Amino acid sequence: SADYSSLTVVQLKDLLTKRNLSVGGLKNELVQRLIKDDEESKGE
C-alpha cells in the first residue's frame, strides 16, 4: 500500500477530500482511514 505516513496532514486531507472521506482526527487516524479505504476498494 502507499506510504501515507510520509505525507503531510495537508496532503492526507486532500486525498481524503477527493475520496469523500472524513478529514477529522489526528494524522494517524487519517492514515488509517486511507489504508482502510484502499483495502475496501480492492475488495470490489
Score class of each variant (00 low, 15 high):
26 L>P: 12
42 K>P: 08
12 L>E: 01
11 Q>N: 04
14 D>L: 07
31 V>M: 08
41 S>I: 10
18 K>E: 10
4 Y>I: 03
3 D>E: 08
16 L>G: 01
29 E>M: 05
34 L>N: 00
26 L>K: 13
17 T>I: 13
27 K>Q: 07
16 L>Q: 01
11 Q>D: 07
35 I>V: 10
43 G>S: 12
36 K>E: 11
29 E>V: 07
33 R>C: 03
18 K>M: 08
34 L>V: 02
24 G>L: 11
30 L>Y: 02
43 G>K: 14
10 V>N: 14
1 S>P: 14
9 V>D: 09
12 L>P: 00
15 L>W: 04
43 G>D: 12
13 K>S: 05
1 S>W: 11
32 Q>V: 08
9 V>W: 02
33 R>Q: 03
15 L>A: 06
12 L>C: 02
7 L>E: 03
31 V>P: 02
23 V>R: 08
27 K>Y: 08
34 L>W: 00
24 G>W: 05
11 Q>H: 05
37 D>R: 04
11 Q>C: 09
37 D>T: 04
17 T>H: 14
16 L>D: 02
2 A>L: 14
17 T>M: 13
11 Q>F: 03
42 K>N: 11
15 L>N: 03
37 D>Q: 06
20 N>D: 07
23 V>M: 07
22 S>D: 12
26 L>V: 11
9 V>G: 04
6 S>M: 08
29 E>N: 05
28 N>M: 11
10 V>C: 15
31 V>T: 05
24 G>N: 15
2 A>I: 15
23 V>W: 05
36 K>T: 10
12 L>Q: 00
37 D>A: 11
20 N>H: 11
13 K>G: 04
3 D>K: 09
40 E>P: 06
36 K>G: 07
41 S>Y: 10
4 Y>S: 01
3 D>T: 06
30 L>E: 01
36 K>S: 10
10 V>W: 05
36 K>W: 10
15 L>Y: 05
12 L>G: 00
13 K>V: 11
19 R>Y: 00
35 I>T: 07
41 S>D: 09
6 S>F: 07
29 E>K: 05
21 L>E: 02
24 G>E: 15
9 V>K: 07
39 E>Y: 11
9 V>T: 09
10 V>A: 15
41 S>G: 11
39 E>A: 11
34 L>A: 02
7 L>F: 04
29 E>P: 00
19 R>H: 03
35 I>G: 03
14 D>R: 08
22 S>K: 10
36 K>I: 09
17 T>D: 08
39 E>T: 09
33 R>E: 02
21 L>V: 02
19 R>W: 00
8 T>M: 03
5 S>I: 09
43 G>A: 13
